[in-house]
């Protein structure tokens, strides 16, 4: 066994390396060293004091990295980490490999609120209306799903899934109607961009808005790994082994929904990360959540940061939306996984 500390350090190093590389690439290439200098800038006085003088980065490059690229890359990494972890937790709680953060209505709720705000012009007129409205929409959708599922058959993960599917269909219809009847064609494009996940306009304000809730949420989910292991075996057996399954289901799904809501409210809907990343990781390292969750967090961060890099660079000057790239990569990967799985398990 590789020591736990080494694995954690390796994963953190991988994420940092990805951030450095992704933030250094673009139409104007800079060096990863410049990015590192920008990241270390706040610590410069302290480092000077202990005699470690830092070289000065080329100002134009430093400002490009600091004000445009770094927030975008960090937002992508945070969102990827949150979606992948939320997906892994939801797949465990629902005991369903198709569960993903969108299933409880989080993404549709956020999308519906965002599209309505965009086509009515509110989002353009009021600075914080879009993320706050989207977050409220996401939470409202989750509350409806949990509430209805709780009334009909408390404690059944299957019911929750069905209610989520129904609400997703309803909200999808509202979104389609709102876009079809938008008074302004420019708003239609804006809404479409949002629906496909768009990090183009990412700012430090966006990063600061979600960094604390996402990191706290990830830390909380990492405390549920033992319980999730027992629950994927059998929910009833988990309860008989001493797991408070109702608590784990509510806390796990609640936090997964919250961090997803926080992310999609600033990035828009990003598909496939929450579905594919945990699958891929599980296939390689197995189903033990004590490893699955931390590795999914790291791989999710790297995956979305690289997907966003692809969105910026691949077809330059045509810029794709990040959500389009994740779907274009994610769909074939998922298909390959399914085929490999059915070949490996004759059932």
């Amino acid at each position: 066994m590789v020591p736990r500390g080494a694995v954690v350090a390796g994963l953190a190093g991988l994420v940092l390396l990805t951030v450095l590389v992704a933030a250094s690439l673009g139409p104007v290439a800079t060096s990863p060293g410049t990015v590192l200098l920008v990241l270390l800038e706040p610590a410069r006085p302290a480092l000077d004091a202990i005699g470690l003088g830092l070289p000065v980065a080329e100002p134009a490059h430093a400002s490009l990295v600091a004000s445009i690229r770094l927030p975008r890359v960090l937002l992508a990494a945070l969102t990827g980490a949150a979606l992948a972890c939320a997906g892994a937790v939801m797949q465990a709680v629902f005991r369903n490999p198709l569960a993903e953060p969108g299933i409880t209505g989080v993404s549709s709720g956020a999308a519906c609120a965002a599209v309505l705000l965009i086509v009515t012009g509110v989002a353009q007129a009021t600075p914080w209306a879009l993320p706050i409205g989207a977050f409220a929409g996401a939470l409202a959708a989750v509350a409806v799903v949990q509430g209805v599922a709780g009334i009909t058959r408390p404690g059944s993960a299957g019911t929750l899934l069905l209610v989520g599917i129904a609400l997703n269909a309803l909200l999808g219809a509202v979104i389609a109607a709102a876009i079809a009847n938008a008074p302004d064609a420019e708003d239609v494009q804006r809404a479409t961009f949002w629906l496909n996940g768009d990090l183009t306009a990412a700012t430090w304000a966006d990063v600061l808005l979600i960094v604390v809730p996402v990191l706290l949420g990830l830390a909380a989910l990492l405390c549920l790994t033992r319980e999730l292991n027992l629950m994927v075996l059998s929910e009833e057996a988990a309860a008989a082994t001493g797991v408070n399954t109702t608590m784990v289901r509510h806390v796990g799904l609640g936090i997964a929904a919250l961090i997803t809501a926080a992310c999609v409210s600033v990035t828009g809907v990003i598909s496939f990360v929450g579905l594919v990343v945990p699958h891929l990781v599980r296939l390689v390292i197995g189903p033990d959540h004590r490893r699955l969750l931390p590795v999914s967090i790291a791989v999710g961060a790297v995956f979305l940061a690289l997907a966003d890099l692809g969105a910026r660079l691949l077809f330059s000057p045509v810029v794709l939306q990040t959500g389009v790239v994740t779907a274009v990569i994610g769909a074939p990967v998922l298909l390959a996984l399914v085929m490999r799985r059915s070949a490996a398990v004759p059932r």
């Binding site: 994927v232 075996l233 009833e236 057996a237 309860a239 008989a240 001493g242 797991v243 408070n244 197995g286």
Partner: peptide, 23 residues
Amino acid sequence: LGARRRAQLVGFLPQDTGVDQDF
């Protein structure tokens, strides 16, 4: 009792023994 304490007093093995995870 809480779930933990209860599990120290009574264990239960369900009939369905399907285990599809790679543990």
